[in-house]
Design a protein around this nucleic acid. Sequence first.
DNA 1: ACCGTCGGCGCC
DNA 2: AAAGGGCGCCGACGGT
Length: 547
Amino acid sequence: MFIALRSVADGIVATELDDTAQHPRMSVVRPAELPGWVAARESERPRWVWDDTSRWYPPLLEAGTRVDRTLDLRLCRRILRMSTTTAETSFASAATDDWDGPAPAAVRASNALFDMEPATADPDPVVELRRQRIAVEESTNPGKLNLLLAAESVGALAAVEMQFTGLPWSRELHEQILADVLGPRPAAGRPALMEAVLAQMREALDDPTLNPDSPVELLKGLQRAGLQVSTTRSWELKEIEHPVIEPLLEYKKLARLLSANGWNWLDQWVHDGRFRPTYVPGGVVTGRWASDGGGALQLPKQVRGAVVADEGWTFVVADAAQLEPRVLAAISGDAAMAGAGRATDMYQGMVEAGAVETRPQAKYGMLGAIYGGTTGESGRMRPKIERAFPVAMAFVEAAARAGEQGESVSTWLGRSSPRGAGATYSETATDAEVRRARNEAAAWGRFTRNFVVQGTAAEWALCWIGALRRRLWELQGEGSDRPLTERPHLVFFLHDELIVHTPAALAPAVAQELRAAAADAGRMLFGAAPVEFALSVSVVDRYSDAQ
DNA sequence: ACCGTCGGCGCC
DNA sequence: AAAGGGCGCCGACGGT
């Protein structure tokens, strides 16, 4: 059963539909009564259909209503528009309309739902749902596409829930870290320890007015002192021997901490002991999530010591070990690579299988295969990886060739990449123009090579989240009416890593569910394929203690 | 005062 | 011959 929600001038129209999206029965619900109404219908396990989860779900959660299943029509529209599996359908060729692109700002405003009368009615979700269902049926792989749409949508629910519950964050411990590394918070100017390091730099360069914060001036200063550098990037500076290098690298680290996760960040993003990032499901072309504000997906290891569980609670931190190589083994059907993945540590498994000699060789070799790297260690390992895993390598090579020629590539479930230009240049092009066109085509090939792996890994992660979310909810019995924040709940997601905040006594059970959900995700995507998805799981009171 | 771009670096 | 994927955020900078 579906129940589609739509905001109109005199309330919210809820349209109940059967599993074929037919036989509508409409009710009108007053906005203030929606959470209670939704909660009452939830026992029938409908799939709630709405334009944007980020618009409808926060007020429901605020009112204590959790929903199990949804279809986020706007997210689904984007997938169906792009997918090569729907390319032949009328859905793909239809003119753009309100459902394409982001929601209008007026609709996005979270209070529009309950506090204000909308100026115009929403576009009809029932019409869009039916169009999408037809597109899926007419696609070349309805089963996979349905799974992708459900996974994308459940991810949107989890994203809103994680923002709602927030990541437990200790202001005191964060301030302690800042004080240890930078010194006390200054009223103005640089913190004391930064100033001290800067003094060392000025001394080493004999340049008392050196401005370290301007890359242009810093570069001039370094060159004036005779250093052979063309940029001020850390990795380039590391190659050089000079008394200024050590304090300079230190200064950069301090400046980074100060500007990205210093006191200002704390003031802006941490309130009432919680960091509440906005996740953006589907925000990355590959299907990965993006984040908006607070840099949730770039949380440096340096400040993870401030992430501390509540009294009597603990964290279960799980990350998927070597997720992308395992995904590559599965989508390419490379049996030898899948065999190496039967080890808990896949890279070690590759060593034991005799493919390479050391674990770092395995790691860099695989990263090179997935990213298209050819220099350094990953380039040197390339022939060995080719020999050991020819099926997998042929798979990513094919994805790269497709991209170079301007073709679209797709993930396992059918999310497709944008089209590239290919190596296009006119007959009268100069050598430089030809070179540039070829470089661009090669870069697009690296993008598509990575797209199929990164995007499928993102699909695995969505399935993992979806399976875990239901398992956690059922952990204490569905009948329990405890709110989300009083049960084990997800608080953080980082591409291949999840954190669950749980009453300490339930941590072993949560760890079990995380592993079971990972196995669920593997089966959902790949059925009986012989690829295992190992997790490393730790139970810790502080995020920085994980692993 | 505001806006867009860029260098640089954090995460996966 | 050479070729590393995806993001977000900050401050500086150059433009208006």
